[in-house]
Nucleic acid binder design. Structure first.
Lengths: 227, 227
DNA sequence: ACCTGAACACCGTTCAAGT
DNA sequence: ACCTGAACACCGTTCAAGT
């Protein structure tokens, strides 16, 4: 084959190929050569659209953040705690849809347009809730840290690439992990299995988020009462 | 050279070489071939001590967790909030000592002996604080999520391998990141720069942890009053 | 048991060249 | 501008062999 026709590809094509590779082979399977092969193109053709592999991964992660359904938390009439919960659940669903994305998240600076949009939305909600700029900034930090940490911990148990298995299977896997803990050396950890392994993950996620939102104090505005 | 003398290496040697490589070249620089080269040995000699690269990385991460100074949080006479804070600060110091470790953390299941010991300690402290087993298990989840998320977010701004730069330098870098945010599109994020960039990171970390501990309620036991 | 050389099937990236 | 072939300097891992 000779040089080939012009503009046969686009950045979206590259990202789509990268995403397909991520779903099929996990985070480490996203290679420049693999993307090129999937597009039927020479490996170095990818460098026409992205400066290097890191840039592809960055755009890939930001694109996943862009998939979050915005309708759930965009309505200012909804109480602020519900809005933040909807945003957090949306992020969780988007990021855990392919377990590999979370692993990529650690190596990508969160400065893409969609990442910034998420942070901006969070600040908007906290502002609407009645927090001043400084409290909103700190609150945004706290919520971000919780969401990222919770998703990271959840992704750690998803060792296979592709979409996560059904809840039953994950509970079984978690139970197996706890069962392997030496009860003599770590008695409390082994005993915690009964509490932890059976908990539906979404419930646990929302419970923790609620505790974090409690920590933000009781802003006025459209907030719901604390309990 | 011929096969060479017996038992010239140990698992510790391999891990030490891996750690040196991590500090010098970052998470992606830890290669089996690099480790072997540093030990003056053929690449495949590493497979005598570890089944594959993932096992080396797992042991490397767990080893870093083992470096946490236990004296600070081991004393049951100290109020529980202080003990948890000491543990969290110890983990933060150990994990951020080399920025690359945090990036590795995402790909390693937290089931090594030192990881389990940290979890067990957390449960012990919460038990001593007066929480029942179920509350302690949930509390441990919440604190773990916060600590991992906060450290992960902090590590994201440490792009260079090796020990983190002094605080001034990190504030300057953070300010530069915020300055690059388009203020027209993301006004609140841009405005938050004044609050976020200047904050000493340890103070922010402890503040967030305090909000999380507030969320655990007010256990009796050796707890300090809430405020 | 521990290490070797050699090989296999991969990587990211660069460069000069072709259209 | 967009793509190519070829090359460079790497990877993880396996295998048969030597001591």
């Amino acid at each position: 084959m000779k040089p080939g026709p012009r503009r046969s590809l686009s950045e979206s094509d590259v990202l789509a190929a990268a995403h397909a590779l991520l779903a099929a082979r996990g985070a480490e399977g996203v290679s420049v050569r693999g993307i090129a092969a999937r597009l039927g193109v020479a490996p170095n053709a990818v460098y026409t659209y992205f400066p290097d592999r890191a840039a592809v991964l960055g755009a890939l992660v930001d694109g996943v953040l862009g998939r979050v359904d915005r309708s759930a938390f965009a309505d200012p009439a909804v109480p602020w705690r519900e809005r933040i919960t909807a945003l957090a659940l949306g992020l969780r669903a988007a990021l855990l849809a392919d377990a590999g994305v979370v692993r990529l998240l650690g190596g990508v600076p969160p400065t893409g347009p969609h990442a910034l949009a998420v942070g901006e939305t969070l600040l908007e909600i906290l502002d609407a809730a009645g927090l001043g700029p400084a409290d909103a900034a700190r609150g945004s930090y706290l919520v971000t840290v919780y969401v990222l940490g919770a998703i990271g911990l959840e992704a750690a148990e998803l060792t296979e690439p592709g979409p996560p298995p059904p809840e039953e299977e994950r509970v079984a896997a978690r139970t197996a992990v706890f069962a392997a803990v030496p009860a003599g050396e770590f008695p409390r950890t082994a005993a915690a299995a009964a509490t932890m392994a059976r908990h539906i993950t979404t419930e646990q996620f929302v419970w923790g988020l609620d505790r974090v939102l409690d920590g933000l104090g009781q802003p006025s505005g459209t907030g719901t009462p604390r309990a």
